[in-house]
Computed example of a mutant assay.
Amino acid sequence: MTDKHSAEQAYSDFSKRLSYGDYLRLDMLKSAHQPITQAHDEHLFIAVHHVSEVWLELIVRELQAAMSLLEQGITDAPLKMLTRVVRAQEQLTNAWEVLKTMTPADYLQFRSAFGQASGFQSQGYRMVEFLLGNRQAVLLRPHEHRPDLHAPLLAALQSPSVYDLTLRLLSARGLPVPAEVLERDFSQKYELNEAVLAVWLTVYRDTETYWDLYELAEKLLDVEDNFRRWRFNHLTTVERTIGFKRGSGGTSGAGYLRGALETVLFPELWEVRTRL
């Protein structure tokens, strides 16, 4: 008698069925892994960046879905989506720990092979930045040669960020968010506004009345907190791998990344803690 828990019970004929590899198109996925050199660690370098790009794509989809619902005044489902963003960000951050096993000597064996290619040119990462509100038009330039990549980024640059939509939601709930904030030029980076801070103080001082808005604010802060952690791990990985050499994409490398750590996406949500 065959044990019902035995592997013998598993499906084995996939001549007319969709298999795991077929469903995930693993042949296509693995075919993209094409090192340029014979260096052992180039495989690691490509794998980490491939995996990171897949996580970034998921984060973009979840942010866009959450933003679409926030625009409709819905808060419960976006909270779940933003929680998923936070978990995906954790995976992105952990990827640096794997890459840190590559020493400077390992990296130098293949670094020159990919020329000016750099994570600075990641459309996925740039889209995440734009959706979260870190807006700089100059960051569109590396994508001008690819209209299919440039157009979505330009649209995101000119549209409300997830925080802008949150402020619109506060206004729709009757809270006094200034018109100049709601109707601002979205292509510009958001700056702290005292009137908006006063609105958040109202929310944080009466969480029972504004529970969903308070919860949304805390979830956004989780997202920014993880965004900062990712950037810090990026910086330390670069420093221990190439020190303060110029980055392959043309930036100052570690110096540029260190400056980026000063970016604040949701300033009132940080400042409200001081003012409470």
Rank of each mutant, 00 (worst) to 15 (best):
Y214W: 15
A39M: 10
L79W: 05
Q91W: 06
V199M: 01
E208D: 14
E62S: 05
L92K: 00
D27Q: 10
E194N: 07
T166E: 02
D148S: 14
S6L: 00
Y214S: 05
A88Y: 07
Q109L: 12
R126G: 06
T274D: 11
L182W: 01
Y163G: 08
E224Y: 00
G124P: 07
G115C: 02
R111Y: 06
D164M: 00
A260F: 08
P78R: 13
N193A: 03
E42Y: 08
R173C: 09
S187F: 08
E62N: 10
P142H: 04
L261E: 06
S15K: 14
F130P: 00
D206H: 06
S118K: 03
T37M: 07
M81H: 15
I46F: 08
L24F: 14
E239S: 10
S6D: 09
A113S: 13
E180I: 11
W55L: 11
L165F: 00
G249K: 12
K4S: 08
H50M: 10
T103Q: 12
L257A: 06
S15M: 07
L56V: 00
H234D: 09
Q38V: 12
W270F: 10
L154K: 14
P35F: 01
F227A: 06
Y23S: 09
L235D: 08
L63P: 04
D225S: 04
S19T: 14
T241C: 12
L44E: 05
G253F: 05
L276W: 00
G243Q: 04
S159Q: 08
S161E: 03
A151V: 14
V272L: 04
D225V: 02
F110D: 02
K80L: 15
A151F: 09
L261D: 01
D106F: 01
G21F: 15
W270N: 01
F244L: 12
L154V: 06
M127K: 11
E90Q: 15
S118A: 07
N94V: 02
D27G: 15
A66G: 04
R61I: 12
V199T: 04
A10P: 01
T274G: 03
V85F: 11
A47W: 11
L131G: 08
R141A: 12
Q9S: 07
V238I: 15
A88E: 09
L92I: 13
